[in-house]
């Protein structure tokens, strides 16, 4: 029989990783809800976040200032996102071809290949890990790796800040409005191209944050964003494309399904359980748990 202790530990482990997956999914769905494009290079921004974290901790700040490294890494990926949007995507969105979202999506595929090759060329295929001197944390009777708990807390704070910005700031209002009608925000005098740029920056910064937070757990190498990106898209399908609450709830659900599957069925198939959940959701609710928010134009 399985012990209560194991069930609780598995539950906590699932929640911890689920919230981090949710960050990635939130980035994907947030960019989609504003720009109506899929950013296939999300995993590469995750990868850049993890490399920045490694370099800052290993070479500049040291393990004690891991939290500062996370802030700097996230900010760095945000700035890179702004530059990417300005240089590669804005030229497409500022002209009116009907299929500009499709063109933009293809550009992100090219970006994926370029960034991954660049990382391999510069850093090689080696795996790195930023040192962590965070102690084991006891959650009740459960010992948990300090880096995981810190990542979870950081992710929760980031999600709280993200929600507060959307809910209480003028820019958050503009972002929420843009997700519903691009024409509507233009008629209100909002610079929709600037909103795109900020949304893209925030979206990839969420991926960069996930990369930085998970660097001590999942290591740092050129393709480390691949698995997390796949999980991000799984969550988006489960939660519903364009739904922010859907991304959060589905992220935690995926974390729990994987965690319980690995603990109670077979850990060798951990990644399969998520796909099984995706298939189940597609059969029962093809639009995902929370469907898709409407856009008028």
């Amino acid at each position: 029989m399985y012990s209560t202790e194991l069930v609780v530990q598995t539950f906590i482990s699932g929640i911890l990783i689920g919230v981090l997956y949710a960050l990635m999914a939130l980035g994907i769905t947030f960019i989609y809800s504003i720009m109506r494009m899929i950013n296939w290079a999300m995993g590469e921004f995750y990868m850049i976040g993890s490399y920045l974290q490694y370099m800052l901790v290993a070479w500049l700040l040291g393990p004690d200032l891991w939290w500062l490294a996370i802030l700097v890494s996230t900010a760095g990926v945000f700035v890179l996102g702004l530059f990417t949007e300005w240089s590669l995507l804005k030229p497409i969105f500022s002209k009116p071809p009907e299929i500009r979202s499709d063109y933009a999506t293809v550009i992100t595929l090219a970006l994926l290949l370029m960034l991954r090759s660049l990382a391999t060329g510069i850093a090689g295929p080696n795996q790195f890990t930023p040192g962590s001197n965070l102690p084991i944390v006891m959650v009740g009777p459960m010992p948990l790796a300090g880096a995981r708990v810190a990542a979870f807390v950081f992710a929760l704070v980031a999600l709280g800040v993200f929600w507060a910005v959307l809910r209480y700031t003028w820019y958050g209002l503009a972002l929420r409005a843009t997700s519903q009608s691009r024409v509507g925000v233009q008629t209100a005098g909002i610079d929709v191209l600037r909103v795109d740029r900020v949304a893209f920056g925030i979206g990839v910064a969420l991926a960069g944050l996930a990369g930085a937070l998970l660097a001590p757990v999942f290591l740092v190498f050129p393709t480390n964003g691949l698995v997390t990106t796949v999980k991000g898209f799984e969550i988006v399908v489960i939660g519903g494309l364009g739904s922010i609450p859907g991304a959060l709830i589905a992220g935690v659900a995926l974390g729990l399904v994987e965690s319980f599957g690995a603990a109670f069925v077979d850990s060798a198939y951990q990644n399969i359980y998520g796909f099984a959940l995706v298939l189940l959701i597609l059969v029962l609710r093809p639009n995902g748990l929370f469907g898709e928010r409407g856009r008028e134009a």
């Binding site: 409005a177 008629t187 008028e296 134009a297």
Partner: peptide, 11 residues
């Protein structure tokens, strides 16, 4: 004011 209803339905 465009032809379509120019409101944000979820706001």
């Amino acid at each position: 004011l465009p032809q379509e209803l120019n409101t944000f339905p979820h706001l």
